[in-house]
Design a protein around this nucleic acid. Structure first.
Length: 459
RNA sequence: GGCGCGGUAGCCAAGUGGUAAGGCCGAGGUCUGCAAAACCUCUAUGCGUCGGUUCAAUUCCGACCCGCGCCUCCA
């Protein structure tokens, strides 16, 4: 199985292969900033990365993949949140880390093998900055902050083609630079490795050779990927918005510090749009997992919906897509229930896996899957084991009810008992009247041969 | 302004130089007293517009129109 992914650096499809003799594939995925619940756009990226993780496990074996995803637990936003809520930084970030984990679990994302935090790796970051200072790639400004000197790294901008943008950087910044850059940078493109302590940082400062302060954002990924995966990693991923400046800056820091290539492969997933626009609070189109659960949506339906678009294409999310997802999952669940346990042919799902291995074509894979489903369970080839392998790849969990059971009010139960009795007595007029009454109360009575069940009416 | 991505049926969305996967919705049917579920069947002569290349273009090239993203800390 040859897994190929688009590489943002070379801009071509490239096969994934471990580079070191130990055969371990080193995969680093930029994680969340833990100051608020993640939104479904964030989860698109994490679900896509989870599929990559799963395909890597299928390709190389579960023990031959090392997946690291960081938690950004110190930055402007986390500090501001702690200050606003009059809590410690750790208190705030632990709360949102726990929430992030719970959401990821609900979405059936495999836990990374390591989830390093920025505050847990201050020493590693300081060491790296120190090396950059010694090598002349960084300088300490008058305010005590340390900046990376972009002009010291000739290849700066290769990933994001920043050189092509250079002519316009001045004008793009002209509007806001005056206010934003009250600091002491030598060049507007230079970025902070270490940020000097300010009063609003409160208790959140660490000692360093350059004085009290805190690490800049980019350096954490360079330091933590190096510690947990080594100086050269096999794959580095994130959302497209991280391509510049975050990933560009990581490359500069890491390669100048280590003297070796930083990542052999870069992959960026596209944004989820809602109502045709990027999600934002001001547009009122930002959803969290809990927002959707409150609407009766299951996490698996969200996961499915997030996989219906090609990961490298913007996906316009709609609430309708969740209904479609829920129905599709029901079909898959039913199909699986009627599948033979064994005796199938592993090649039956070849088309499905070919789609996934070809640059993670999840919508194409789902299409291939349903083509199979439409041929029926009697079609030779697919058995439960083969089907479950496909479900594993996509991370779709089909067990459990489609919707969480809701407590039935006693009044509704009483009506149902009456109606069932009327039906048994073949008093269909009364039975129909009671069905209407139950429906009017917002419930649906489902008859079976030997009994019935009640569930909340679908909106 | 620069860089990048996209415009395929009512909605979502794959794909290919040789005549359009799949999901949802909708329609019809089987089954069920009814309803629901499940299952079966059907649903784009068309792929933003205009040119060009070609025996053949939705697929390649050019122009144009429209939408979206990024351009210093947003997945």
């Amino acid at each position: 199985m040859a897994l190929r992914l688009f590489d943002s650096l070379s801009r071509e499809l490239r096969e994934l292969q471990p580079s070191l003799p130990d055969g371990i594939y080193r995969f680093y995925n930029c994680g969340p900033t833990v100051y608020a619940p993640a939104h479904i756009g964030n989860f698109r990226t994490f679900v896509v990365n989870d599929v990559i993780r799963r395909l890597l496990e299928l390709a190389f074996g579960a023990t031959r993949v090392r997946h690291v995803r960081n938690l950004t637990d110190v930055d402007d936003k986390t500090i501001r949140r702690a200050r606003e809520e009059n809590r410690t930084l750790a208190d705030v970030t632990q709360q949102w880390t726990a929430k992030f984990h719970a959401d990821c679990d609900a979405l059936n994302c495999l836990r990374p093998h390591a989830e390093p935090t920025a505050t847990g790796h201050i020493t590693e970051q300081v060491d790296m900055i120190d090396t950059l200072m010694q090598k002349g790639n960084a300088y300490r400004a008058a305010d005590g902050s340390v900046y990376f000197k972009v002009t010291s790294f000739a290849q700066y901008g290769t990933l994001s083609r920043v050189k092509e943008r250079e002519l316009q950087i001045g004008s793009a910044l002209s509007g806001k630079s005056a206010a934003a850059d009250a600091d002491e940078k030598e060049d507007v493109s230079d970025f902070a490795l270490w940020k000097a302590y300010k009063a609003e940082d409160g208790a959140n400062g660490w000692e360093s050779p350059w004085g009290r302060g805190r690490p800049g954002w980019h350096i954490e990924c360079s330091a933590m990927s190096k510690k947990h995966l080594g100086p050269t990693i096999d794959l580095h991923t994130g959302g497209v918005d991280l391509l510049f400046p975050h990933h560009e800056n990581e490359i500069a820091q890491s390669e100048c510090c280590n003297g070796t290539p930083f990542s052999r492969h870069w992959y960026h997933s596209e944004h989820l749009l809602v109502d045709g626009k990027k999600m934002s609070k001001s547009l009122g189109n930002l959803y969290t997992l809990d927002d959707l659960i409150a609407k009766g949506v299951t996490p698996m339906a969200l996961r499915y919906a997030l996989l219906t678009g090609h990961p490298r294409k913007q996906l316009n999310f709609t609430l309708d897509s969740l209904h479609a997802a829920e129905k599709a999952l029901t079909t898959l669940r039913h199909y699986r229930a009627n599948l033979p346990i064994s005796g199938g042919d592993a090649r039956a799902l070849a088309a499905f896996f070919t789609m996934l291995e070809d640059d993670l074509n999840t919508p194409g894979a789902l299409g291939a899957l349903f083509t199979l489903v439409n041929r029926g369970v009697s079609d030779r080839g697919v058995d439960v084991a083969a089907f479950d392998r496909a479900m594993f790849a996509l991370g779709l969990k089909l067990d459990g009810p489609a919707a969480p059971p809701a407590a039935t009010p006693a009044a509704i139960t009483a009506l149902a008992v009456q109606r069932w009795a009327a039906k048994q007595a073949k008093d269909f007029a009364a039975a129909d009247a009671l069905r209407k009454e139950i429906a009017a109360a917002g419930w649906t009575m489902l008859d079976r041969k030997d009994g019935y069940s009640l569930e909340p009416a679908k909106k």
